[in-house]
Design a protein around this nucleic acid. Sequence first.
DNA 1: CGAGGAGCGA
DNA 2: ACGTCGCTCCTCGA
Length: 486
Amino acid sequence: MAKFYDTLLWEYIKNPWVKGLSLDDIASKEFDYKMISYDEVSEKQTKNFTEVDLVTASKYSAEDVYITNLIYQKQLKEWVVDNKVLKNIENPLIEVLRDIEINWVKIDQNKLKQIWVFLEKEIINQEKIIFEIAWEEFNLKSPKQVWEILFDKLQLPQGKKTKTWYSVDNEVLEYLALEHPIAKHIVLYRWYFKILSTYVEWLLKLVDKDTKKIHTSYNQAVTTTWRLSSTSPNLQNIPTWKDVYWSIREAFIPYKENDLIVSFDYSQIEVRLLAIMSWDENLTWSFLQNLDIHKMTWYFLFWKDDITSEERKIAKAVNFWVIYWISPFWLSKMIWISQKQAKEYIDKFYEKYPKVKDFFSKTIEFCEKNLYVETLFWRKRFIDWINDRNAIIKKAKEREAINMPIQWTSADIIKIAMIKINDFLIKNDLKSCMIMQVHDELVFNVVENEFEIIKKEIPLIMENIIDDKIKLKVDMWFWKNWGECK
DNA sequence: CGAGGAGCGA
DNA sequence: ACGTCGCTCCTCGA
């Protein structure tokens, strides 16, 4: 509870009219309340917080919640989060997150150690090759040194710029790979090193010696879109990439031998929400007929029934990117087509899905007038600068206005699903439990004899969050580790 | 210690 | 001149 209010507070402090003020300042200025300072509690930093006596410590901690609540009552509920949201979503979710955090996730340390050995060998190998090609040793982890080797020493053509020098990121290197063999090896080195340092080492460091599980923290109010975020470790960015021999996700295993990892994810939730919010006939029709939405987009754009997998990929990208109010230039870069073609695709998309376009322009109009946007679940986001004269800023803010309601609503949907599922698990006295949330995916540790009921009931709960003609769709995967669940 | 570059996810 | 939101890694200069 305290954690949630604490993060809520940060959301408040980010805002311009309180920027620079500390909680103490706000307390005394707005509520004439003098808070205990940390210096006082820790007796001028001589005491560790665990050594402070319980009464003082609780009073000190409770003050944060108390003041935050005062701020909430006075200002926050007007615009950061509505009472209904707090009552129906955020507050009940606190207990669900507590349960997930208590459950933990079991890790196969041996698997990680095997991967470690493999990666270390590859890293040394790539390093050797690179140094041979470059005729000198340098620090591959330093973009600056890579820059010097590529552009000063090898005189390769420079691409896009960063703030301070020319970029040497993956995109540039992939282009350079056509010119010089060294680029390919740097990409490989970087990738192996990334996996080793960020995932393998970090996960092993965080595994509890006794339980062989990791303990992650979910934050409820750090993101502007009201999605959850996860730290130490961040379980929401574990690579999905699968090598022939291994993947990081394979190290995420069930608690017991006969248990299963079961994963449910919302399929195309953002496009479905777009259909629900815009009521576009063509989009709605495709979903109601339970058709392949990407294929249908291709069909609507070109009246072609047969579709190659390449064409489906393009249609998928168009569907996906249009939601983000993307420019033809950027779309052309994403899917390797000409700018002219990209513009054509986007124009045709709006032509065939006219109410989507209406919905977008109405959203922007509303935002320009009121300086905020709203979602299906009573949330508001203030977007100042929407009327900025600088076209680039204006466009960026328009993108925000269009994307936010969709992303927010999907964040709310999965939160509500989590609350209902936890209720369901408790009411039916099930031993299976929720162990992870990855934005549109929920992962469970399922005990053997409960698999049938979980398989049947969880998708029902998830798909019926919104009472609409268009149904949300949930895909299910299960196996002995998370790696096979995709 | 913080900024910047890089890269992973949704 | 151009997707958003996050987290974590490393380097480098103060």
